[in-house]
Computed example of a mutant assay.
Amino acid sequence: MSSLGKSVRLFLADGTPGGLVTAEIMNWTGHVIAAPRSDLGVLLKRPEASRTGVYLLLGDDPDVTGGTLAYIGEGDDVGKRIRIHNQAEEKGGKDFWNRVLVLTSKDANLTKAHARFLESRFIVIAREAKRAQLANGTTPPLLPLPEADVSDMEFFIKQAKIVLPVLGVNLLRNTATRSTPSTPDPSSQSDASPEFALTVKGANATAQEVDGEFVVRQGSLARPEWLGTSLSYEKLRQQLEEDGTLVLTDDGKHRVFTRDVVFASPSAASSVVLGRNSNGRLEWRVSGTTTTYGLWQGRHIEQADGDS
């Protein structure tokens, strides 16, 4: 059965999708503001900017095509901290970022200790998620809090992990495996994704669709080298080899995934695994069956037609 839905309220402060945006979840005291750096002056005039909270600075990673460079910080007055980061680097600022997000509390009950706890936890979660390169040099120690406060902060984090992806920020988004039935059933009406497999000569990989993203699992084996024509997926494959995600095995027969990797599509995943351009909707199959990813995905349409 599907989990309960969430209502996320977005407000476009200037009426444009590229400007300052606020986000809230019903029955959550947290409040999120996102703005491009060019609108920093507008953000700093808002009352939330003078509260205690956590902030994220986001920009392009110069070392990874399409990658994100991020900095996570906290402050009694987050606006003052962001003003410092907005200075030139020779004055202690940071040049890389082009977007800022501020997470505070609507009831103004976040304390300095809470903010430092959140900062430390956010950094740990972001490093584990490996969605972005962090500009933070170290991870601050996790401050001890009363048990009730820890529970409140973990709930705050849980809600933040829902809101941020809605704003296009996947920094804290993990790729945990969904629960799946022990025996795959393509006709099942469960929303959970089964495990998919791609097994051919020179490759043996597994994957799963998690929260709308296609994730190839750590330990999967890909072909040792690119065999196809020069396409965009070749650059992606090369990038994964260079950053240590695809490592050549000792016998040189495969490259192994050293971590879970999120791909934009099943075809991007299968192309990297096979070392050539491929159609992932046909290549990936539900483990233990002949059902392709495309057929599995199509069952939702058949079910909808049957219920109409």
Rank of each mutant, 00 (worst) to 15 (best):
residue 122 F to P: 00
residue 159 Q to A: 06
residue 134 L to G: 07
residue 110 L to I: 08
residue 204 N to M: 12
residue 94 K to E: 14
residue 96 F to S: 12
residue 185 D to I: 13
residue 120 S to Q: 10
residue 94 K to Y: 13
residue 122 F to D: 02
residue 190 S to W: 00
residue 168 G to N: 06
residue 79 G to H: 02
residue 208 Q to V: 10
residue 86 N to F: 04
residue 143 L to N: 02
residue 105 S to D: 15
residue 185 D to S: 15
residue 212 G to D: 07
residue 125 I to M: 05
residue 122 F to V: 05
residue 150 V to Q: 15
residue 168 G to Y: 08
residue 150 V to I: 14
residue 141 P to Y: 00
residue 133 Q to S: 13
residue 208 Q to R: 14
residue 138 T to C: 02
residue 114 H to N: 15
residue 139 T to Y: 04
residue 84 I to N: 09
residue 129 A to M: 10
residue 143 L to R: 08
residue 205 A to N: 05
residue 170 N to T: 11
residue 170 N to F: 09
residue 183 T to R: 06
residue 92 G to Q: 07
residue 130 K to C: 04
residue 145 L to V: 09
residue 89 E to Q: 12
residue 106 K to N: 13
residue 137 G to S: 09
residue 116 R to Y: 03
residue 83 R to S: 13
residue 184 P to Q: 00
residue 192 A to P: 00
residue 165 P to K: 01
residue 130 K to I: 00
residue 133 Q to P: 01
residue 144 P to G: 01
residue 165 P to N: 04
residue 144 P to V: 02
residue 136 N to D: 09
residue 87 Q to G: 11
residue 129 A to K: 14
residue 185 D to P: 15
residue 98 N to C: 11
residue 116 R to T: 09
residue 112 K to L: 10
residue 86 N to Q: 02
residue 219 G to R: 10
residue 165 P to M: 00
residue 179 S to E: 09
residue 181 P to F: 00
residue 148 A to H: 15
residue 90 E to Y: 12
residue 102 V to H: 10
residue 117 F to Y: 15
